[in-house]
């Protein structure tokens, strides 16, 4: 479903140039559960943003479900996010003025789902994360774990193909984190492709495939080694040393 080939993401900060992603090539198939780990600044969030079509590669190709994202317009990428991609953030990103059910309705509001259907689907999504009784509460009346579950309901309500979670447990205690991960994994079990960015090894261990990043490069990709679909990717760890020389050319 996802194909990254030689993707670079370069930022210009003042006079210096920062390479958030250096020649990343990666394939993720439908229904995979992938954890991306690495120290902060390793480019894992940037990778997630590129995967989520929020950011575009500076160089290289990114193909999502057969479409090359780099050539899509803002409208087309927005439509892609709306229909196919769900996001879960570390800080939940709930709108404080809306109730839980209002927050879950939000993606449907902008997708033009009729009000009645919207309410039904939002309540069903909240029930699925065990928060039906809290539907009328505002975020400041909910615990962190509950907020993240509302956010997961919001991400799932449009039935996306891909769910991207950026440190989904980073702001939660152990018990709430476990609950959230169970929810995400249950959604994965129903066929959703799940990519979790984390720096928590315990969270990463729960994934079938772990991609370790450092300095914008993929150091290790357990999934790529495991199957023949990732054979090309398997060369990447060996290919990685060649990247710096390429980056030298790039600069």
């Amino acid at each position: 479903m996802i194909q990254l080939e030689g993707v670079w993401r370069t930022y210009r900060v003042g006079d210096s140039v920062v390479h958030a992603l250096r020649h990343v090539s990666l394939a993720i198939r439908r229904g995979e559960h992938v954890a991306v780990i690495g120290p902060s600044g390793s480019g894992k969030s940037t990778l997630l943003h590129v995967l989520g079509c929020l950011d575009r590669p500076t160089a290289g190709r990114y193909t999502f479900a057969g479409r090359e994202v780099g050539t899509l317009s803002d409208e087309e990428r927005s439509a892609l996010r709306q229909k196919s991609i769900g996001f879960v953030f570390q800080f939940f990103h709930l709108l404080p003025r809306l109730t839980a059910v209002g927050n879950v309705e939000l993606p449907m509001l902008f997708a033009g789902v009729p009000a009645q259907e919207r309410r039904q689907r939002a309540l069903a999504a909240l029930a699925a994360v065990g928060l039906a009784p809290r539907a009328g509460h505002r975020p400041d009346q909910l615990s962190g774990g509950e907020c993240q579950r509302v956010a997961i309901a919001r991400a799932a309500v449009m039935s996306p193909e891909l769910l991207l979670a950026d440190e989904p447990t980073g702001n939660l205690d152990r018990a709430a984190a476990a609950e959230v991960m169970e929810l995400l994994e249950a959604m994965h079990a129903r066929g959703l492709t799940l990519v979790v960015v984390t720096h928590d090894p315990a969270i990463a261990k729960r994934a079938r495939r772990v991609i370790q990043m450092c300095d914008g490069e993929i150091l290790e990709d357990s999934g790529a080694l495991a199957d023949e679909g990732g054979r090309r990717g398997a060369e990447r760890p060996e290919g990685a040393p060649s990247a710096p020389s390429q980056s030298g050319v790039g600069e």
């Binding site: 929020l54 803002d74 409208e75 927005s78 439509a79 953030f89 800080f91 709108l95 993606p107 902008f110």
Partner: peptide
């Protein structure tokens, strides 16, 4: 700003 970021992530276009 965070709300704008969220809306964009939810697939709301720049124009909207």
């Amino acid at each position: 700003t965070a709300e704008v970021g969220l809306l964009r992530a939810l697939g709301v276009t720049r124009a909207t």
